[in-house]
Simulated assay, not measured.
Amino acid sequence: MPWHQAKTHGKGEELVICLHGLWRSLWAMDPLAKQCIHSGFSCINLPYPSFRNTLEQMVERLDLLIQQEAPKYSKIHLLTHSLGGVIARRYLDACGHDKCSKVLMIAPPLRGSMIVDWLGHSPLLRVLGPAGDFLSTANMGNECSVISQDVESAVIMGNKVKIPLFQHVIEGENDGIVRVEAGMIEGLDDFKIVHADHTFITSHPEVLVSTDRFLRTGKL
């Protein structure tokens, strides 16, 4: 559908590509995308079928977009939520581009999901699609232990639980879906925790301010 196609907004010389999370849509990243445009960046809020594609397919979609857009901009930045951070991190390892400058990942399960571990071989795991095959803590512990040093990188995690549905599953400080520890990987340039839950963290005022600051200065 037309609203599922990537479109560029803004007239900045630097491009920000937004990647939403699992079972979400580009609307989830809309507050961040608008913040980027207001700050003078161009922005593409990229939709993708997160519940149908494999990780490799999602990385390929991002790679094709960056190859297509790179000649038009001086720099490209990646701004992600949840699963989008896993895609961005894998992209930087598997593909990368010399114009990729900054990556900010919000609530990313970079060290895996305890919810996926808990679901195990349950039929409910199928609801997650292919993501259920690679988001376990065992798989992600090896997959995302280090971030590329070719870019400036930062992570923002939430620690507010609005709906304690999975609290008997998730150990330690968390946002109701992803534990804070899951975003702590080696090589990050900055790391921050905000009092926000997983679903609405992308519209949290402190996150919007920190995102703008990071894209402009490299610090949250």
Rank of each mutant, 00 (worst) to 15 (best):
L135C: 08
K99W: 04
A196E: 01
G176P: 01
I170N: 04
D133N: 13
T199S: 14
A131S: 12
L79F: 03
K34F: 03
I156D: 00
K11I: 13
H195L: 07
I66L: 07
T54M: 03
E14Y: 00
P164K: 05
S42Y: 01
T211M: 08
L19W: 05
C43V: 05
F134A: 00
Q35I: 11
L119T: 07
E152P: 08
N53H: 15
A28S: 14
S39D: 09
A154F: 00
P47I: 09
P2T: 11
F214I: 04
E13K: 13
D117L: 05
L119G: 06
P2K: 11
N142S: 15
D212W: 10
L65M: 08
P109G: 02
D190E: 02
F51I: 15
R179F: 12
V103T: 08
D30T: 15
A88V: 04
L83R: 06
A28K: 14
E181R: 12
T8K: 14
G132D: 06
L119K: 06
H38R: 14
I163S: 13
W23L: 15
I17M: 06
D150T: 13
L104I: 03
Q57P: 07
V146P: 09
F191Y: 12
A88Q: 02
I163E: 13
Q57N: 10
K72E: 10
K72T: 05
S42D: 05
R24H: 13
K34R: 12
K102M: 03
A138P: 08
H9S: 13
G85D: 03
D190M: 01
S148F: 03
S82K: 01
G40A: 04
V161D: 06
K99I: 02
P130W: 07
L165V: 12
